[in-house]
């Protein structure tokens, strides 16, 4: 393929499912250059069919291995799967080692599967810049389920839930007591819980702790749906079919309860705000050597506060803030 093929010429081949075109379009989305903007806008109009599923959990909890088994089950049901696997970038060099493919072995070469690794490149929240546009591309290319595997998260990286229809939180057994399970954050966002490494004896305890936490929460949060907790053991393939069934059932629930459109609308809102932040950020970067340097000099003399400097920076790019 010609390295300089225009992004607009990739739109139709992407929608026809051509892998080389999909791959190149994903690179253009990740680079986020202005050349790709129009093509991405056209592709966005062709989205809306895929079930977008987030898989999140602490590092080493078994996300990649579970995803590969889940995809194998999905293939058996005759569906196509796109996977975006996010791994962290080094805060020092900016480079990364993306190793999620190691666990995905044979399935990643299946003609109905497309796996793409992405580095966070400084983005927080468990996703990478460009992840959601990558979802659009795979959706438009006809993948029935698009799975986002987040970086290994801590307790607070909940961006994935604001970007997906169904969020699966993977918990590994033996990582803390039942108070961990009632803390705020990552465990709250699950539409489906998976407890990995089900061959370990502690896994049953983790399952029962999660279940009792969910039992406590039901009346207070007004949840209309019990969140399933599924024990999985990927090497033995145990719990995988149940997990896929629970993911499918959640989408069905969203549709029948009428929550689906609401969730999609909140994803759109979130994306608009995120994109606006990004546009502003890029705009600031353009003034790094100019106005921003002047303001920094004033700041170092302590003649103005950071807040005042921020207002002046905004005023400089034509955004007078009155309040």
């Amino acid at each position: 393929m010609d390295p300089r093929v225009p992004s607009l010429e990739l739109v139709e081949p992407v929608c026809a499912g051509e892998r080389r075109a999909i791959a190149r379009m994903l690179s253009r989305a990740e680079a986020a250059g202005p050349e790709a903007r129009e093509a991405l806008d056209l592709l966005y109009r062709r989205t809306g069919r895929a079930h977008v599923v987030g898989i999140t959990g602490v590092p080493g909890s078994g996300k990649s291995t579970l995803v590969s088994k889940l995809v194998a089950a999905l293939l058996e049901s005759g569906r196509k799967a796109g996977i975006i696997a996010v791994d962290p970038s080094s805060p020092y060099s900016g480079g990364s080692i993306l190793g999620d493919r190691i666990r995905m072995g044979e399935i990643s070469s299946h003609p109905s599967v497309f796996v793409r690794s992405m580095a966070t490149h400084g983005a927080l929240g468990g996703l990478a810049r460009g992840t959601l546009e990558a979802v659009d591309i795979l959706d438009a290319a006809g993948y029935d389920m698009v799975i986002i595997e987040t970086v290994g998260v801590g307790q607070d990286e909940v961006d994935v839930v604001r970007a997906t229809h169904t969020t699966v939180v993977v918990s590994a057994p033996g990582l803390g007591d039942d108070i961990q399970a009632i803390k705020a954050g990552i465990l709250e966002i699950a539409d489906v819980h998976a407890v990995s490494k089900g061959d370990k004896p502690e896994s049953d305890r983790t399952v029962s702790e999660l279940k009792s936490m969910l039992g406590l929460g039901l009346p207070a949060t007004g949840l209309r749906r019990a969140v399933p907790v599924i024990k999985t053991c990927s090497p033995r393939g145990e719990g995988v079919a149940e997990l896929l069934a629970a993911i499918d059932a959640h989408r069905q629930y969203l549709v029948t309860s009428g929550e689906y459109e609401g969730r999609r609308q909140s994803i759109r809102e979130r994306r608009m705000l995120k994109a606006a932040e990004q546009v502003l950020h890029d705009e600031f970067e353009r003034h790094r050597q100019g106005r921003m340097a002047d303001l920094l000099a004033e700041l170092s003399g302590a003649s103005i506060s950071p807040h005042t400097a921020a207002r002046r920076l905004l005023a400089h790019i034509g955004m007078e803030v009155t309040r």
Partner: peptide, 14 residues
């Protein structure tokens, strides 16, 4: 590791 430290994204297949 060397390429990562040089700022590249490195995909390792196993």
């Amino acid at each position: 590791r060397t390429l990562r430290d040089a700022g590249m994204d490195v995909i390792y297949t196993g």
